[in-house]
Amino acid sequence: MMMAAARKATNWFAIGVTAAAVVVVLVVGGVVWFANSQATSPGTLPQSSAVNTDTGAIAVGSGPKTVDTYVDFMCPVCNSFEQSYGPTLQQLVDADSITLNIHPIAILDRLSQGTDYSTRAANAAYCVAVDDPGAVSAFVKALYAQQPKENTAGLDDATLASVATSAGASDAVSSCISDGTYTKFVTAMTEKTPLQAGATSIQTPTIAIDGTVLTNKTDLSGDPQKDIVARLNG
């Protein structure tokens, strides 16, 4: 009888230890899941009629065809693209031929002396889109006009806010920029940038016409009529 009782007590002890171990595993798993979800969370979403919070696109215009541009505001090639193709894209927007989807992304933070300029500039673009979607085009043009060179600190937040208000945004945009309100969103949307054919990493600018991603080396000759207009009409 005593041996049976002892055996029974030992069994309950083993069950208790097992249950406790399961609880610990669940707690640890929950902590890991939470940490991972926080790391990959898009954070605060830019609530604006112009912003697609699934893709990160800031829409300019409302034409039936689409041109998507994935740009880093510190990227000199993106600036060259803007100078060569920007006027044609704006004409197509004004003619209600296209919706221009601007995707501000950040892949060149490492080239801004620790200030994360690419992320800050992209965040500022979303701040402007939320404050006044109509100011986005002017803000983007102004950013390129004042584009800092790679391996410099870039524009500070106060200057970004000044550029934004000069483009038509309200003074309220300043706190959004200095707070980095959409920093996590920029990071999450950058990861959604499509890869060009044959590429193993994100390249800027990346351009897509009606969903078809172009390849910089073979599809962008510098002639917007050939590279953009012809493809839209084809």
Rank of each mutant, 00 (worst) to 15 (best):
A4T: 10
R7Q: 08
T10A: 14
N11F: 10
N11V: 13
W12Q: 09
I15H: 06
V17G: 05
T18S: 04
A19F: 03
A20N: 09
A20I: 07
V22L: 13
V23K: 06
V23I: 12
L26M: 07
V28N: 07
V28T: 10
G30A: 10
V31D: 07
V31F: 10
F34R: 05
N36S: 11
N36I: 06
N36F: 06
S37P: 08
T40L: 06
T44L: 04
L45C: 07
S48R: 02
V51L: 02
D54E: 15
T55E: 11
I58E: 01
A59H: 07
A59N: 13
V60L: 04
G61D: 09
G61E: 06
G63H: 01
G63S: 05
T69S: 14
F73E: 05
M74T: 04
V77W: 08
F81I: 05
G86K: 07
Q91V: 05
L92W: 08
D94N: 15
A95E: 11
L100C: 14
D109T: 08
G114N: 03
Y117S: 06
Y117M: 14
A121F: 01
A125V: 03
Y126M: 02
V128E: 00
V130L: 00
V130Q: 00
D131W: 01
S137N: 14
V140G: 07
K141T: 12
L143M: 07
Y144D: 08
P148R: 13
P148D: 13
E150D: 13
E150S: 09
T152A: 09
A153F: 06
L155R: 01
T159S: 06
L160P: 02
L160H: 02
A161Q: 09
S162K: 04
V163K: 00
T165N: 11
S166W: 07
A169G: 06
A172T: 01
I177W: 01
D179T: 04
D179M: 03
G180E: 01
T181S: 02
K184L: 13
V186F: 00
T187F: 00
T187R: 01
T190Q: 15
E191N: 15
E191S: 15
E191K: 15
Q196C: 14
A197D: 11
T200F: 13
T200Y: 10
Q203V: 15
T206E: 10
I209N: 02
G211Y: 14
V213A: 06
T215M: 04
T218Q: 10
D219H: 04
L220A: 10
S221M: 07
D223A: 10
D223S: 12
D223C: 12
D223F: 10
P224Q: 13
Q225K: 12
A230P: 14
A230Q: 15
R231M: 10
G234Q: 04
